[in-house]
Amino acid sequence: MLVPQLINGLTQGSLYALIAIGFVIIFGTMNLVTFAHGEVYMAGAFVGAFAMSLWHLPWFVALVMGMAAAWVLGFLIEKVAFRPLRTAGHMPPLLITIGLSIILKDLAVVLFGAENRPVPSIYEQTVRLAGVQVSVLQLVILGLAGTLFLVLRLVIQGTKIGRAMRATAQDHEAASAMGVNVNRVFSIAFALASCLGGAAGVMIGIYYNAVYPTMGGTAGLKGFAACIFGGLTSIPGAILGGIIIGVVENLTVQFLASGYRDVVAFLVMVIVLVLRPQGLLGRKLKTV
């Protein structure tokens, strides 16, 4: 029973990691925290679910549509919530994104109803790998998450916008003096982060065969817990954090009680913040 639970944990953890990376990209470049990330993920999940259940599109088209919708939403959120308040400190943008998250969740309830919406299943067969039964869907999700991690790494390391993002992360003013359009970097970073969240949303909808308006709350917080684990500024840390949370959650279900599975992420978050606010892999943050 242990190995299947580990694989379940790995699958879920890789999706938490996708959400967590979004927080890292946003915090890394802008030094701000968004609270609407979970709702972006929810929006992506709904678009994906509609694409598959209403318009009967194949899952990868649904995935691209969900990511595109999340990209647009992220772009808009950055414009509304972050741009006017760039110099106002951390709290005003955080509060605005709290407002946005309430609005988005409520709109989803009013428009789509509070109940679960079914999402068609795909790849229901299982394969035997090294003596263990693994569902093909889990392999697809793991492969997809891995691909996105790699693509992201290539974008950040090898492209012009990636270099601009890294420069901006180091120092906004210096980057701007070197001719980097910081506002554009922020827009793209936020959209990119949202797009990864949207991808996670679509995949989780397919994985659990359901989407619902409040799905973003817990998922967003768990992604955040994962990114705290990595110290808010480290992408590998966020990936590791997501996977650890996913695995420990599934072990909790196995060995403790299923009701307490969600406690894991928050316990991790509180303990890490209290004991090591810079995270396990993050750099030590400058204190006041």
Binding site: N31, Q157, H172, I235
Partner: peptide, 15 residues
């Protein structure tokens, strides 16, 4: 403001 009392970016999102 946060613990991170720094006006610009907090660090590098490196993959």
């Amino acid at each position: 403001l946060s613990r991170v009392d720094k006006p610009s970016g907090a660090g590098e999102p490196v993959g």
